[in-house]
Nucleic acid binder design. Structure first.
Lengths: 337, 337
DNA sequence: TTGAAAGCGTTACCAA
DNA sequence: TTGGTAACGCTTTCAA
């Protein structure tokens, strides 16, 4: 178990072979006889031999390490993605180096720099909210360095992406509210710099139009994700002469915050107003009434992003591709389900 | 930004110095003149030069990488710890390689093997529930390889540890229940192979004794953390002729599961039975009644474990030490607070 | 089918 | 205070 002390040379000596032969045998080179391979492998197994990755990397200019950058590790959404990434990349012989950007553009840049300096073979990232400056990512890509984005992507960077069809997801959520009888729907939306927030709004508008309902402008609350402001947003909404009868929230945290505010105000959910969130987090089934939500296949997305990375490693010069994941509506009590 | 192409040799050539001098200058060796250092550093900065970690590692037998093994990445508790670890270790020039054991002893062994093969300079781990076999960790330690455990530790492994005083925590929880009027207290305990589970039980016993209350043996449910069994445990408990009037749970997940079961059965909390959990997770303030809990300083523990690792790297041959963190009781509605 | 040897980018020993 | 050089463990070209 101890940090490998044996080298290829030890194997060679023991078997009366040369380093080169042993190296080739370990890599199952076609130029090596079956019996030789056998011998090498069996001794290697017996010794628990593993190649020194640093020597290997030094020679091959690869590290067999993948960098992953997320806004925040300690968030279920992203740690699940990381878990998905690991499930695919470890069996392929890669390790994962993790960086967190803490929702800051500068930190994101620093973290990427650091990972690149550590010689990761590629990068899978989900962008941080306020990030505008992405030229350095473009530069990396131009040098043939694989960068794959998932979930929070930027239109300005031309790389492979794994995303959710947020427009369709929002459409689904709003249509569900409408089918449940809502006619005056409010929205606590996210940071407008994120394309996902904009796409959600597109979906909202499309759903309303499809059902001949108006978009009530003052019910569309932008940047409504700050947990400290949610209660006042809700209070304001419900104090209107014609308050909303349905509220869609940017994520479950916001939705739960909203729900708690409504309960405190004695406004019955779903009877008087219906609520739906996004992400389908654990808390949805903890709160009462249980929260309806839109489920994102985040583990699957992590896996898919990793497959793109591996494919790219296999043969570079691939055209960037975008893989779109669908979401599913989870109906619970908060929308009368 | 691109993966460094320049080498020490390029710097040397450009400055009319030798590789050795440049290397020493970069490491601020005392043998190098101030002016030379200046020149080297300024060119290195200008070029954005960074040493090749693989070549460095090959030569020095270090990787400047720390391995972290947790039962599950996608769990707030552990991802917070990882975050804490990163906050301390990144500024020290180390990267973090993460492995998850999925609560399985075999996986844990494999993951450690893999990380060691990847030449991590040390390991910070939180053990998985069912783990018995720890000889390999002992072996590593004997070879001078740093292993630090946090939270879920094993008494059988003689290494530095960062733990919570679980006995005191459990004492606090039980004493609180008693002060709130509970006289027949039940416990959904954790895997008995974990020392934390045993220490909790010690605390429970001590608290009961201190208040002259008996420990009701059939109310002490071992290995009670399986979410599928929690409802039947709760049902069984409450169907007893003399059911418990207080339940302490191994963690918040179990407590919430228990609470939901009680609500479904129409048993009022906290009036008929009081509940307390451990970890103080987000869901505590989502469920109703809000869940009382014991808060663990998990980010701080991750940081402290990392400091121990760095100290050990600085000078090996340290005696193992154990750092104990205290917890705080968070009183909410589920215990009538 | 196998072996010898060069070289990846550092560090560290020995000289100067 | 600085330089030359071997060595870390592996891959790979060239030769046999």
């Amino acid at each position: 178990m101890l940090p490998q002390k044996k080298t290829i040379e030890d194997l060679a000596r023991e078997l009366n072979l040369s380093k080169s032969t042993v190296s080739r045998a370990l890599h199952d080179s076609y130029q090596i006889g079956e019996d030789t391979k056998q011998k090498v492998h069996s001794l290697a197994d017996k010794w628990g031999f593993q190649l020194n990755p640093q020597a290997r990397g030094l020679k091959t200019h690869r590290s067999f390490t993948l960098g992953v950058v997320v806004p925040e590790i300690a968030h279920k959404y992203f740690s699940s993605a990381i878990s998905g990434i690991q499930q695919v990349v470890l069996p392929a012989g890669y390790n994962v180096l993790i960086g967190q950007a803490n929702e800051s553009a500068e930190q994101e840049y620093k973290v990427v720099r650091q990972l690149v300096a550590s010689r990761v073979d590629g990068l899978i990232m989900s962008l941080s909210g306020q990030t505008y400056y992405h030229e350095y990512l473009q530069a990396l890509l131009k040098d043939g360095f694989p960068v794959i984005m998932f979930d929070r992507v930027s239109d300005e960077v031309d790389c492979s992406k794994v995303i959710i069809d947020h427009e369709a997801a929002a459409f689904k959520a709003i249509e569900h509210l409408i089918e449940q009888g809502c006619r005056r729907i409010a929205h606590l939306s996210g940071p407008q710099v994120l394309s996902i927030a904009q796409n959600r709004i597109k979906g909202i508008k499309r759903a309303l139009k499809a059902h001949d309902l108006p978009l009530i402008p003052e019910f569309l609350i932008e940047n409504g994700t700050n947990p400290e402001h949610t209660p006042s947003h809700i209070e304001w909404l419900m104090q209107q002469p014609n308050p909303p009868d349905g509220i869609s929230c940017f994520n479950d945290d916001v939705a739960i915050n909203a729900l708690l505010t409504l309960k405190k105000a004695g406004i019955p959910v779903p009877d008087k107003v219906k609520i739906i969130g996004f992400n389908n987090e654990k808390e949805c089934v903890v709160i009462e009434p249980n929260l309806s939500s839109i489920e994102h296949p985040v583990v699957e997305m992590g896996k898919e992003a990793t497959r793109l990375f591996l494919k790219y490693i296999e043969k570079p010069n691939q055209k960037p591709q975008t893989i779109v994941f669908d979401t599913s509506l989870i109906v619970r009590q908060s929308t009368g389900g």
